[in-house]
Amino acid sequence: MNDICLITGDHPRHLYFAKSLAESGRIACWVIETREHFVPAPPANIDPHLRDLFDEHFAKRENTEMKFFGNTRISDVGIPYMQVTKESLNARQTAEFIAKHQSKLVISYGCHKLQPNFMAAVSATFWNTHGGLSPQYRGVATHFWPSYFLEPQMTGMTLHETTSQLDGGGILFQTAAPLVRGDTLHALAARNVEYYAMQLSEKLNALDVCNLPSPIKQKTYGKVFMAKDWRPEHLRLIYDVYGDSIVDLVLDSELRGREPELLSAFDE
């Protein structure tokens, strides 16, 4: 039965995610938000070496996501879709498109914040995919910060109920992909998206949308990273100090840290 709607961004990882979940046969429709340019321009007035690191970092992200996710096109996904902007994401027309397809569950990933009046108009359950392990890593750039804090094993994905609190809703499902020798920061991030999409697709195959699992309340507030927290200077540690080999250092036990404690309401 097609009874789930997706709302995603339009970056490579988002299109791959949508295609993977569509293969479950459960996706009724898809809302796609046009996001910012995938490869940003460096800030003005930074020193030449830092500018080079910035360009290298985002070029590597683009190349890695093409390697993992390919050149997935919207038409490849094969489900009814509607394209929106940040401004029209919460519009009445968007709610009407979802309602027309009789979706009982909406799963979002990579879009801007969904407003309460929009969700009320759709009359469905809303879950959000967050690229980070909540509550330890919430907010923005949460596949960057675990490696920056020298614990790449804490890179992961969280499915949680959509609430007004940023990435703070009750947890439905979490994954953390195994570390693979040779993985860079971007490869680790992409591998986690790939692993999560595969695991979630399997969960959806057996999901009864009329008897959804009860979310697990987050017991601690954790850390919420904001866009202003990240600066190009952070790249020096990743590339100049550790040569983008932090995963290997953990596998060689030269770096140690926390291990993820993954939650799943599906197994309760």
Rank of each mutant, 00 (worst) to 15 (best):
P152F: 01
E194P: 10
E261P: 10
F225D: 10
A190V: 04
Y196E: 02
A190P: 03
K223N: 12
L237R: 01
G132Q: 04
S253G: 06
G257A: 05
V209W: 10
L204S: 08
K219W: 09
S164H: 07
A197Q: 10
E261I: 15
G139Y: 10
L212H: 11
G169R: 07
G132K: 06
Y148H: 09
H234E: 13
M226E: 12
S201C: 14
K223I: 14
M154R: 01
P135W: 00
D248G: 02
S245I: 03
Q199D: 14
S164G: 13
Q153L: 04
G156T: 03
G168K: 01
P135F: 00
Q218Y: 14
P260T: 09
A176W: 01
T162D: 13
T184Y: 02
L179E: 07
P213G: 12
Y221F: 13
K219E: 15
L188D: 00
E233N: 04
S253I: 08
A189V: 11
F173D: 00
L172C: 13
T162R: 09
L212A: 15
L179Y: 03
H143M: 14
A197D: 15
A197K: 02
M154T: 03
D248S: 13
L166C: 14
L235S: 02
V247G: 00
L188P: 00
V247P: 00
Y242G: 06
L235R: 09
E151Q: 14
A177P: 05
L150T: 03
H234F: 06
L251N: 02
A227K: 10
T220A: 13
G131H: 07
I238Q: 03
N205I: 14
Q136E: 13
S134Y: 08
R181D: 05
H234W: 03
I238Y: 00
A206Q: 14
D244E: 08
L185D: 00
S214T: 15
A176F: 02
C210V: 11
F173M: 04
L179T: 11
Y196I: 11
Y195R: 04
L188Y: 00
L251R: 05
